[in-house]
Design a protein around this nucleic acid. Structure first.
Length: 415
RNA sequence: GGAGACGUGUCCGAGUGGCUUAAGGAGCACGCUUGGAAAGCGUGUAUACGGGUAACUGUAUCUAGGGUUCAAAUCCCUACGUCUCCGCCA
């Protein structure tokens, strides 16, 4: 959510952001409504002040046995007027609020402008594409050889777009999760949280998944609850509606969770194996920081995620997302893409974003600074990492000629 | 799922329709006092949106949303949450 004052003072910036992010939001209508709301609020305040003043006189008048018929009649009229005005005010607030929900965050000035991922900017890479003296297999062939996954039976339990890890496959996935969690906790000093993966509507608004992505979410109708598409939702909303002390900041959290995505609109895309799933596991990092620290923190979180791939010895590259590829709530995002030699493709395994105060405003997460001023925190999150695609790269990179997988030592100690 | 109790500020806690401008206490901050500390004393202590150069000031917020009333923390309805008991299930 953007501050209405900010919108008012930066109309052109906001309109440009909406256009560059391929969003639709009617800023002119918002400004008109805000003006009207302000006027209505003032009318209400004045009349209400009058009502309170006179109401306080009534008991005195009654005590003096004065005739209050006339004054009561007058007050009755004020009361009615107030009702009308306050219902207008409610309508205006509601309308304004629902429009503001659709205004995306402003991209940071460093973010390349462009309408889709073809404008993403290459930043750096680490390691080299693995080379083989035989023709490397892709992860599907490898998992078949080693019996790591079952992609057929799983459709009986649920349907397509789900995976079952079997035997050593399940062990590898579990090792990955434990390895990553441990790494962030011990080496990067994050605090582990284990939170619900079922959240209410308010939380989904808080982190900005709603209203835009409702179609992409699994909904539990009876309760109006959602399955989280990422642990970011649970972690960030952990502090929903709080005023923290500056002494508590920065907060660094890491959490493992399954993630649920309907992937509506991407049927038939990347359906092969582990590429795109309705349910997958992910280790997620979230930080709440003071505003002046957030961009430095973004760089640190990128390094935290990179460290995992380095430890696993997987070649990757980092790109900075263009405005059109940026998520609704993000001001700046780095994607880490890992190389999978058998598939001969880079796969996105991490997305690290700075939301500045966009989520903090929606979820109302504030802090009292050194001068006792209440300000919004900045929120950031990053995958560290998503397991299925990491698994693809892992299997394909460490395959041997005989089709066996020779896993790096950092993982085998977790198996 | 059934029955009941409860929900007040940072926390505890008073408050059954107007004398509440939410008492009182604790905590916290600052000051006085002290060689230093503690105790004591004094002062301050929410958030949001308006108005004003400012001191200051108007409105809203007692879980949330509705209702009754000239007037609601207080009465009524609904939702949510917490706790207790019962039932059911791990």
């Amino acid at each position: 959510m953007l501050d209405i004052k900010f919108i008012k003072e930066n109309v052109d910036t906001v309109k440009a952001a909406i256009k560059n992010k391929n969003e639709k939001a009617d800023i002119d209508l918002i400004l008109d409504l805000d003006e009207e709301r302000r006027k209505t609020q003032y009318k209400y305040d004045v009349l209400r002040a009058e009502q309170k003043k006179v109401s306080q006189l009534i008991p005195q008048l009654k005590q003096q046995k004065a005739d209050t018929t006339e004054i009561l009649a007058e007050m009755s009229k004020i009361s009615l007027d107030l009702k009308t005005i306050s219902s207008d005010l409610n309508d205006l607030n509601e309308k304004l609020d629902s429009l503001l929900q659709w205004v995306p965050n402003i991209p940071h000035q460093d973010v390349p402008v462009g309408k889709d991922e073809t404008s993403n900017k290459f930043l750096k890479e680490w390691g080299k594409k693995a080379e083989f003296n035989f023709k490397p297999l892709d992860h599907l062939a490898l998992s078949e050889k080693n019996n790591l996954l079952d992609l057929k039976r799983v459709t009986k339990i649920t349907g397509s777009g789900f995976v079952s890890y079997v035997g050593e496959g399940a062990a590898i996935e579990r090792a990955l999760i434990n390895f990553m969690l441990d790494f962030h906790i011990k080496k990067h000093n994050y605090l582990e949280l284990s939170l619900p993966v079922i959240v209410n509507r308010k939380s989904m608004y808080g982190t900005g998944q709603l209203p835009k992505l409702e179609e992409d979410m699994y909904l539990i109708k009876e309760e109006d609850f959602f399955l989280v598409p990422t642990a970011e939702v649970s972690i960030t909303n952990f502090h929903q509606n709080e005023i923290l002390s500056h002494k508590q900041l920065p907060l660094k959290y890491v959490s493992y969770s399954p993630c649920f995505r309907r992937e509506a609109g991407s049927y038939g895309k990347d359906t092969k194996g582990l590429q795109r799933l309705h349910q997958f596991n992910k280790v997620e990092m979230v930080r709440l920081v003071k505003p002046q620290e957030s961009y430095q923190t973004l760089e640190q979180m990128l390094i935290d995620a990179e460290d995992i791939l380095k430890a696993l010895g997987l070649h990757y590259r980092v790109v900075s997302l263009a405005t059109g590829d940026l998520s609704f709530a993000s001001a700046k995002t780095y994607d880490i893409e890992v190389w999978a030699p058998g598939s001969e493709k880079y796969f996105e395994v991490s997305s690290i974003s700075n939301f500045e105060d966009f989520q903090a405003r929606r979820a109302s997460i504030r802090f009292r600074d050194e001068n006792n001023k209440v300000k919004y925190v900045h929120t950031l999150n990053g995958s560290g990492l998503a397991t299925p695609r990491t698994m693809i790269a892992l299997l394909e990179t460490y395959q041997q000629k005989d089709g066996k997988i020779d896993l790096p030592e950092c993982l085998t100690s977790f198996i």
